[in-house]
């Protein structure tokens, strides 16, 4: 009897302690959030409360002007289509390079598959670095050397994609069954054959699903880099906005086009991923 009382008392003490700790953690978090927003507000050019009533001014202006010149919109959207295709091409090539480069990097940095196991940490650090450098930095450096246009943006996004996909691909490859690889080895297949026939068919659904997700992320990145000067729809958007009032219909057309594109690829990638991951791999995620 005394045992149960003691256990119950100890349990209550432990639960109370836990509640205290999580309460403290939440208090610290709330304090960080509030003081953080206060600080960000102080360092911003305009204040939050002053700006809040104006938050709809710009969209309203844009919508009003676009509605007034609604007849122009289809033509303006058509004008922006070549730039949009460039943005999508940048993302697609970058994803392609990312899949090929990331796939090779993943295979040579996965324990059990790597041809040179001693170099695994080196390749992993290389992937970390490729992931850590923001696309913006690489893009601006390449713009300085190669001039503006789609190539700097492609190289920048591809470099980052190799790092990001390499890590995810390697995590998938780690879980691949070693049996096909061993079977191929026993009949004398070389490393490339072992990977191509033993590993790639196992990991392909997950790799493709990650590549689809990356493609969607890359479209966003490519639009943003265009805004900084690397061509494509982002660049057109910056020009349209700098024309200012009276020409907002052009900006509105690009906004709509960009929005529809991103929503389209977002839905496409999530649908494709669902089919690939849930449908093909027999329940293994």
């Amino acid at each position: 009897m005394t045992d149960t009382i003691q256990i119950s008392a100890e349990y209550r003490a432990a639960a109370g302690r836990k509640r205290l700790y999580s309460g403290l953690l939440w208090a610290v978090f709330a304090l960080l959030m509030i003081s953080g927003f206060g600080l960000a507000n102080d360092r911003n050019a305009g204040g939050f409360w002053a700006g809040l009533p104006q938050i709809l001014d710009f969209p309203a202006e844009l919508v009003a002007e676009a509605a007034a010149k609604a007849a122009n919109l289809p033509g303006l959207m058509l004008n922006a289509v070549p730039a949009l295709i460039e943005t999508i091409n940048i993302a697609a090539v970058a994803t392609l390079i990312g899949v090929i480069g990331g796939g090779i990097m993943a295979l040579i940095s996965t324990p059990g598959l790597a041809p040179w196991p001693r170099l695994i940490p080196v390749f992993r650090r290389l992937l970390d670095i490729a992931r850590a450098i923001p696309e913006l930095v690489i893009a601006l450096v390449f713009i300085f050397i190669l001039g503006g246009g789609p190539v700097p943006a492609t190289l920048a996004i591809a470099f980052h994609a190799v790092g990001a996909l390499g890590k995810l691909f390697s995590e998938v490859a780690e879980n691949a069954s070693p049996k096909p690889v061993e079977g191929l080895q026993s009949v004398g297949a070389n490393w490339i054959q072992r990977m191509w026939f033993g590993v790639i068919p196992q990991v392909a659904p997950n790799w493709i699903s990650y590549a689809m997700l990356r493609f969607e992320i890359n479209i966003r990145a490519s639009a943003i880099l265009g805004f900084v000067g690397a061509g494509g729809i982002g660049y057109e958007l910056r020009n349209a906005i700098s024309w200012g009032q009276g020409r907002y219909d052009a900006a509105a057309a690009i906004f709509i086009l960009l929005f529809l594109t991103i929503v389209f690829f977002d839905q496409l990638s999530s649908m494709a991923r669902e089919r690939l991951v849930r449908g093909n791999s027999g329940g293994r995620i």
Binding site: F37, L39, R43, N44, A45, L52, I55, A223, I224, F255
Partner: peptide, 28 residues
Amino acid sequence: FDFLRGVDALIWTIVLARAFGPGPLTGS
């Protein structure tokens, strides 16, 4: 949720910068 994601950080940045001016709050 689809709308918030579809507008993308780039467009949100442009729209919010008009109301709040440049600075970390707009970025946040």
